[in-house]
């Protein structure tokens, strides 16, 4: 039994309008909005999930639209332990883009990162299977070749959304009491020097702090 909460930074990747934010909205607040505006104002969203007696806290980072013109900053991937690469099963172009993101992650990100490939918008196929432009097998094959988790989801109906996050959570090594924090290279950070600016040590207003 482990009562520690494991925090996981998860980044979203995928072409614009494939439903990245909608998947998160479904997962975080079990909600869906048909004509969702691009995400504004939230640094990241968090959601806790219980997995086999453990609590996993997802810290989910949205691209904030910076993927549109190849302008996603390297900062985005820093210390990310998991990624969702999302494509739209009705848009072949978005699947090509997904391949690009897999390559990008292999180059930029931490080797142990858990990556899930997600084909979204399967609800569209319910009435009309002709709308499907990316075969399920294609997605499965790519995921298998690259060692990724694979799900087909619908943010609209909620199909497989929570399942995707739970599957990621199950693959993440859980924090046990006394574990040291590690950085992206797996190097332990033992750190009195690291600081939290927002909750700064000594009151900032005081003068006469200097005694040299």
């Amino acid at each position: 039994m482990n009562s520690a909460v494991t925090s996981i930074k998860l980044v979203l990747l995928g072409e614009a309008a494939v439903g990245k934010s909608s998947i998160v909205l479904r997962f975080v607040s079990n909600d869906f909005s048909e004509n969702k505006e691009p995400t504004i104002g939230a640094a990241f969203l968090t959601q806790r999930v219980n997995i086999n007696d453990n609590t996993v806290k997802f810290e989910i980072w949205d691209t904030a639209g910076q993927e549109r013109f190849a302008s996603l900053a390297p900062m985005y991937y820093r210390n990310a332990q998991a990624a969702l690469i999302v494509y739209d099963v009705t848009k072949p172009q978005s699947f090509i883009k997904a391949r690009h993101w897999i390559k990008e992650l292999h180059e930029q990100a931490n080797k142990d990162m858990i990556i899930a490939l997600v084909g979204n918008k399967v609800d569209v196929l319910e009435n009309n299977e002709d709308e499907r432009k990316v075969a399920r097998e294609e997605g499965e094959k790519l995921a298998e070749e690259e060692g990724l988790l694979f799900f087909e989801t619908s943010a609209k109906t909620g199909l497989n959304v929570t399942e995707t996050f739970v599957a990621i959570g199950e693959k993440i090594p859980l924090k046990t009491a006394g574990d040291q924090e590690t950085d992206s290279n797996g190097v332990a950070i033992s750190d009195e020097q690291r600081i939290d600016l927002a909750n700064s040590g000594n009151a900032a207003g005081q003068t006469a702090g200097c005694s040299c």
Binding site: P38, I40, A43, A64, G65, Q66, R68, A70, S71, P74
Partner: peptide
């Protein structure tokens, strides 16, 4: 990068290259 992300989160559009 951090301030660019702040801008993007509040609707700023980014074009590198």
């Amino acid at each position: 990068q951090g301030f660019a992300r702040l801008s993007a989160i509040y609707g700023g559009t980014y074009m590198l290259d």
